[in-house]
């Protein structure tokens, strides 16, 4: 069993892996609720309002 003497060090070593896995799950969840399609549908329109015109 690994005895962790310093929690901060443990977090610094494992956190990026946990975050990367969590991030992939978040991307999958976003795709599942069609977020990417919503972004796409706005991004393909020349959004004049979005760039300070109109």
């Amino acid at each position: 069993m690994i005895k962790i003497k310093n929690f901060k060090n443990y977090v610094q070593h494992y956190a990026p892996w946990y975050i990367a896995v969590g991030a992939i799950m978040a991307i999958a969840a976003g795709i599942a609720i069609d977020e990417h399609h919503m972004i796409f549908s706005y991004a393909i329109v020349v959004c004049l309002n979005c760039i300070g015109l109109g």
């Binding site: 969590g22 992939i24 978040a26 976003g30």
Partner: peptide, 13 residues
Amino acid sequence: PLYIAGFVSFIGA
């Protein structure tokens, strides 16, 4: 913003 937060977090990590 799950999709974007996931994307930014992945690159950041």
